[in-house]
């Protein structure tokens, strides 16, 4: 038995199940990160000794990481269009680049930001700013990690589906792409909030 509208679009809504599902998931994620921003505002405005954030964090690394994520978002959308044009090799190239950028982001985040900070003794219990910093960026980094795992799957073993069910494969890449752009979008707001203001 097949579930209807897994691959094809339902005529009256114009959506497939997975695409509708991922948008609902993203709506939930909006509220998830929204709670973080809400908490951040309350904790920061309620604090008298909030450190000057740009003194504590390295704006250059933050900006470079922003650029990396934007580039990965671009390669993600290009990989999807390549697949729609049935250019499988180009798809593999672009999603490979996306994975590369994502890993680069995590490497910069962990080796150049988390580890030196922990060496300096700046951890969650130092003050509320660092607690908030680790929580917000950490949760975001977990989302990146999840995305990397899924993209590696679709770059490697998952891409066999291109031979058996190309339509569904294109849909799956679109869904992964939506998730990935959302993770990028969250960072676009995290970067000025934590590094610049």
């Amino acid at each position: 038995m097949e579930i209807p509208f897994t691959v094809s679009e339902r005529p009256d809504t114009g959506l497939t199940n997975p695409k509708f599902g991922i948008w609902l998931f993203l709506a939930s994620e909006v509220m998830l990160f929204g709670s973080l921003f809400s908490s951040y505002i309350i904790l920061r405005t309620g604090s008298l000794d909030w450190p000057v954030q740009s003194d504590e964090l390295n704006i250059t690394i933050g900006a470079v990481n922003t650029a990396i994520l934007i580039a990965s978002s671009l390669t993600m959308v290009l990989s999807w269009t390549a697949l729609k044009e049935k250019q499988f090799k180009r798809f593999k190239l672009f999603i490979g680049l996306t994975i590369l950028f994502a890993v680069l982001f995590l490497v910069l985040k962990i080796w150049l930001e988390y580890i030196p900070k922990i060496h300096h003794g700046h951890i969650l219990s130092t003050n509320t700013f660092f607690a908030m910093y680790y929580l917000m960026t950490g949760l975001h980094a977990l989302h990146i990690l999840g995305g990397v795992v899924v993209m590696i799957f679709f770059w490697g073993p998952g891409s066999k589906m291109w031979q058996t069910n190309p339509d569904q494969f294109v849909n799956r890449i679109e869904v992964v792409g939506l998730y990935w752009h959302f993770v990028d979008l969250v960072w676009i707001f995290l970067f000025p909030t934590l590094y610049l203001l």
């Binding site: 939930s28 994620e29 929204g34």
Partner: peptide, 25 residues
């Protein structure tokens, strides 16, 4: 459920960090 539960999710993570990581949210 979809739109309200995330706020408790964040709250629970923060309280958990307060307990195990010594933060003071």
């Amino acid at each position: 459920l979809l739109l309200a539960f995330p706020s408790l999710q964040i709250g629970a993570i923060m309280q958990l960090l307060d307990r195990v990581a010594g933060s003071s949210f």
